[in-house]
């Protein structure tokens, strides 16, 4: 059931969605967005490839292991928490600061971002893992 229209559109749209999801991830602290939303969005983009083409294409485009992705995400999130402990603060204490970078201007860096990246990775990994296993398993 390959549709030519879907096929052509997906090729373009997937890039936009993925880019937008990363945008969502980084601006989530101050505007709508965040790791969870961005993660789902990225997963949806990849699911779009899956629906348009097949699992093989997905695997070729994204040769990563989803369980490893989940593990990495948990590592980021828990690691952010442990970072605080190492510096003598309670587990999961977050902090932030503002930096001035030439050309770009004032930006804010928060440890919450690294936590959010963890959330992002787990959400993408788990969603894709479930969908791809069910897709594969039901054949």
């Amino acid at each position: 059931m390959i549709s030519l229209i879907l096929n052509r559109i997906a090729r373009v749209v997937v890039h936009i969605i993925l880019l937008f999801s990363i945008f969502m991830l980084f601006k989530g602290h101050n505007e709508p967005g965040g790791g969870f939303i961005a993660g789902l969005m990225a997963a949806v983009a990849i699911v779009l490839i899956y629906i348009t083409y097949d699992l093989k294409t997905v695997k070729k485009l994204m040769p990563v292991s989803y369980p490893a992705m989940i593990a990495l995400g948990l590592f980021f999130a828990a690691g952010t928490g442990l970072g605080g402990v190492m510096l003598g603060y309670p587990f999961l204490t977050q902090t932030f600061d503002y930096f001035h970078i030439p050309l770009i201007g004032e930006i804010e860096l928060a440890t919450a971002l690294s936590f959010d990246i963890g959330v992002f990775l787990v959400v993408v990994g788990a969603t894709l893992l479930i969908i791809s296993t069910l897709g594969e398993g039901s054949k």
């Binding site: 989530g28 505007e31 709508p32 967005g33 999961l92 977050q94 928060a110 919450a112």
Partner: peptide, 20 residues
């Protein structure tokens, strides 16, 4: 927490343990 998106700040900072 230095964030203006309250929903996200709750998720990643105030209630980060729940999110974890």
């Amino acid at each position: 927490a230095g964030g203006t998106n309250v929903v996200n700040v709750i998720l990643v900072d105030f209630r980060a343990f729940d999110t974890l």
